[in-house]
Design a protein around this nucleic acid. Structure first.
Lengths: 183, 183
DNA sequence: TAGATTTATTGACAAAAGTCAAGATAGGTT
DNA sequence: AACCTATCTTGACTTTTGTCAATAAATCTA
């Protein structure tokens, strides 16, 4: 946050007080579909994925690693039921902030809107790039996008999740990988 | 803006002063790829599309109609060259606000960050839904998404742009439409 | 470590969408 | 209105990816 614009000591104290550090075990579901996303998590360490169900299939919508801010956007912003679930793909350490504590902070420290606006803008822009990626329509291009952006996590993410993240069948991903020589 | 939270008279006056109303003719390019997106446009009336080039093909990335706030997100937020162009698909009336005027407003009226944070959140969430749509992999589902969200503009948008927006070939869209009975 | 369960790979085939090309339709311009 | 141009439609064919199934590999659990 200080990288965006230095924050006041009082705001810093308020934030530190509100954020609760938690350990999350691999396999745990942080948010279940249809529940309201009442918390924002800062991912101090670990790996998460969000996914939703279309028909009888599970589709991985995002992959989030250390340093990411994790929410289910639609659900958190409007405090309505989520259309996706969030699952830990590895043991994680998160800093948890409740929606209501965050609203209190906005009330007491209106200048904090500045920071979060910039952060939201950044995430918005990243989404744009994801959209752009999904339009690169062939499997090779999609897999290369993944390699460019998530290379470090390749071995930690089951391939079936990578496949649905890229919107291709797991078999296609497997074939693409062997075609490219298992990069 | 008042719908989000009433704004002060002074802020309202500042905004009205900074926004410049402009007519934009059909076919005009509001933003050229590689230029920096120096303005934010509020689309009072009309229809726009943004697109970028992948290889030798033009891909429509967004379709924006009356009431939308129009920017090239990556370029505007960071004032770096755009990777997309923005074109008027119809005669438009826009209210233009420069990046620098907007920064002045943020400086003078920090509470304005609150409004724009909420707006950015809304657009962020809409992007999520677009991503979700592109994952509905068959052409029929994609076209139905378009009908649900842009039905009123169907006749005003050339089909080849709708096709690239949905990430399908124009021929496929044509066939999908005749299969569905030209809805 | 052994067994069970899940995940990944490979092959054969089917289905969907893409490409190319020709003709029809619609739009814009003089 | 007539022409020119761009867009849309349709058909034939190709390519890519999906699906189903069987096997191999890896992971988890007791």
């Amino acid at each position: 946050l200080n990288g965006i614009q230095p924050i006041s000591k009082k705001l810093e104290i308020a934030l530190v007080e509100c954020f609760k550090i938690e350990d999350v075990q691999k396999g745990k579901i942080l948010l279940h579909e249809k529940d309201i996303c009442k918390n924002l998590w800062f991912l101090c360490e670990g790996l998460l994925r969000s996914y939703h169900n279309i028909g009888n299939k599970e589709i991985t919508s995002r992959i989030m690693y250390t340093g990411h801010i994790v929410i289910s956007p639609g659900s958190f912003f409007t405090q309505t039921p989520a259309t996706e679930s969030i699952e830990a793909l590895a043991d994680c350490v998160v800093a948890k902030l409740s929606f209501y504590d965050l609203q209190d902070i906005y009330k007491k420290f209106p200048e904090f809107n500045y920071h979060t606006r910039l952060i939201t803008e950044q995430y918005f822009y990243k989404q744009e790039q994801r959209l752009y990626m999904l339009r690169k329509h062939d499997a090779v291009a999609k897999y290369n996008f993944f390699l460019e952006n998530y290379a470090g996590y390749l071995k930690d993410i089951p391939q079936k999740y990578i496949a649905s993240f890229l919107n291709i069948a797991p078999e296609t991903l497997s074939r693409t990988r062997s075609k490219l020589g298992k990069k």
